[in-house]
């Protein structure tokens, strides 16, 4: 791949005796949507937290726009982290702030926008994710799970990031709401032309939002390819995962 947006090479991370990432290699092109699939506890979350600088990996390389963030000065790496947005699994909305203050957080705190202007922007982004201005002054705890996800999405795109991470965006939602979120993800990512890295174990969601899919198992990428290639693959890991079978090469540690 030429000039990838994100290039991860031979990434290792262990917590105590437990190896979580065991040599991950991954590249994401500019404007591409990559979905990483894998079971619970295979290190998906750790992978995106390493890329975002929330966790320091033990060894390996993570380049963003060609800039090596591992071992770089925090101040220099911060410029690249600032161009990232993230939709958290549980929403991770700040419960001490109202809905619009959540959406406008990055605009007020970092871009130093006035509160009045930031509120207008926040309402614009809330509309974009299908929420009306009525919810703007509510507290996040007054919203349903699906609405919280939408607010989280609005907050993630409000700062116009280059790269957006989605941590299990459809987990815990009903199938219809899940599809609504999928559509919103596709539309909002395309609209701002960002690269997207999604982790999920929802295959329907993965097929819908991915340009390319990679499968993580035991801290390694065991397969990657386009959605078309996914249909034809004979990779036993992927087949077992898609069929949701307990029989196969993937052993669940009980």
């Amino acid at each position: 791949m030429k000039n990838p947006k994100i290039a991860v090479k031979n990434l290792h991370k262990a917590f105590g005796d437990k190896t979580v990432l065991d040599g991950v290699d991954l590249e994401i092109a500019s404007g591409e949507s990559l979905v990483v699939i894998g079971g619970s506890g295979t290190g998906k979350s750790v992978l995106i937290k390493c890329i975002q600088g929330l966790i320091t990996p033990d060894s390996g390389s993570i380049k963003i726009d060609g800039f090596e963030t591992i071992g770089a000065e925090r101040k220099d790496a911060e410029k690249f982290y600032a161009k990232m947005g993230m939709l958290f699994q549980g929403g991770a909305l700040f419960d001490s702030l109202t809905v619009w203050e959540n959406v406008a957080f990055g605009l007020i705190e970092n871009q130093k926008m006035s509160r009045k202007q930031a509120k207008e922007m926040a309402i614009k982004y809330l509309h974009q994710v299908g929420l009306s201005a009525d919810v703007a002054d509510l507290s996040p705890s007054e919203l349903s799970g699906g609405m919280q996800k939408r607010v989280g999405l609005a907050r993630a795109i409000a700062t116009q990031p280059d790269i957006i991470f989605f941590d299990e965006p459809t987990t815990g939602l009903d199938p219809i709401m899940a599809d609504v979120i999928n559509d919103l993800i596709i539309n909002s990512v395309k609209k701002i032309g960002a690269s997207a890295l999604t982790i999920t174990h929802d295959m329907a969601s993965a097929r819908k939002i991915a340009d390319r899919i990679a499968m993580l198992y035991k801290g390694k990428i065991v397969w990657q390819g386009t959605v078309e290639e996914l249909k034809k693959t004979d990779n036993p890991y992927v087949i077992q995962f898609m069929n949701g079978s307990s029989q196969g090469p993937i052993k669940v540690e009980l």
Partner: peptide, 20 residues
Amino acid sequence: AEIGTMRVTEQIDALSTLST
């Protein structure tokens, strides 16, 4: 309790991702 809840609901990570 407040900061601990923010930690386990990933709100502290969310602050970092919003460059705060």
